[in-house]
Simulated assay, not measured.
Amino acid sequence: MKILLKTTVAAAVVLAFCQSTASADTLRVAADLSYPPFQYRDSQGKPAGFEIDVTDAICAAIQAQCQYVAGSFDSEIPALLAKKVDFISPQGATEKRRKSIDFSDFVYHIPTQLVARKGSGLLPDAAKLQGKHIGVQQGTIQEIYANQYWAPHGVDVVPYADQDTVYQDLTAGRLDGALSPAVAVTFGFLVKPEGKDFALAGAEVRDDKIFSTGSAYGLRKGDEALKQRLNQGLAKIMADGSWDKIKQRYFGDIDMKVHQPADIK
Rank of each mutant, 00 (worst) to 15 (best):
Q142H: 11
I254L: 15
G92W: 08
G202L: 11
A30Y: 08
A151W: 13
A126P: 00
A11Q: 09
A48M: 07
Y68L: 13
I77F: 04
A93I: 09
D162S: 07
K265C: 01
V115S: 02
E204C: 08
I246P: 00
Y35L: 09
C66M: 12
F198E: 05
Y145M: 10
A82V: 04
D32Y: 02
K6E: 00
S75A: 12
P90F: 01
V157H: 00
S72I: 05
Q91N: 09
D74I: 03
D162F: 04
Y68I: 10
F189R: 07
A24E: 12
T94S: 15
M256A: 05
V29Q: 00
D42R: 10
M256R: 14
L15W: 14
M256H: 12
G195L: 06
A199L: 06
A22R: 12
F251E: 03
K99H: 12
V85D: 03
G45T: 01
L122N: 03
T55R: 04
A203L: 06
P193L: 05
D197Y: 04
F17M: 15
I246A: 10
Q113P: 00
I58S: 00
L200P: 00
S215M: 15
W243F: 14
Y145A: 11
S215C: 13
V115F: 01
Q232C: 03
Q168A: 12
S23N: 14
T186P: 01
V157E: 10
T94D: 05
S100K: 12
T140N: 02
I264V: 15
Q91L: 14
D32V: 01
V157F: 11
V107H: 01
G173F: 06
V166P: 09
D102C: 11
V191I: 14
P47D: 07
D125H: 14
H259P: 05
Q91K: 13
Q260F: 04
V205S: 01
S212W: 03
H133V: 06
F251L: 14
I110K: 04
V258E: 01
T26I: 15
D86C: 09
K196W: 03
V69L: 01
D197M: 05
F251A: 10
I134C: 08
L230Q: 03
D240I: 11
D162M: 03
G188S: 02
V183R: 01
A16M: 13
I3T: 15
A30I: 00
D156S: 11
A60C: 02
L27R: 03
K221P: 13
A61N: 10
A82F: 10
S212Q: 06
K6Y: 14
F251V: 07
R97L: 07
G252M: 05
L226W: 07
P124M: 01
A235Q: 15
G222E: 08
G71S: 12
S34W: 04
T186R: 11
A239H: 13
A82H: 11
Q248R: 10
G173E: 10
P159V: 05
T165K: 10
V136K: 01
A70F: 04
S89Q: 05
Q63N: 10
A70M: 00
F106W: 08
T21W: 14
R117N: 00
L15D: 10
D42W: 09
I134Y: 03
K99G: 15
R41D: 09
K118S: 14
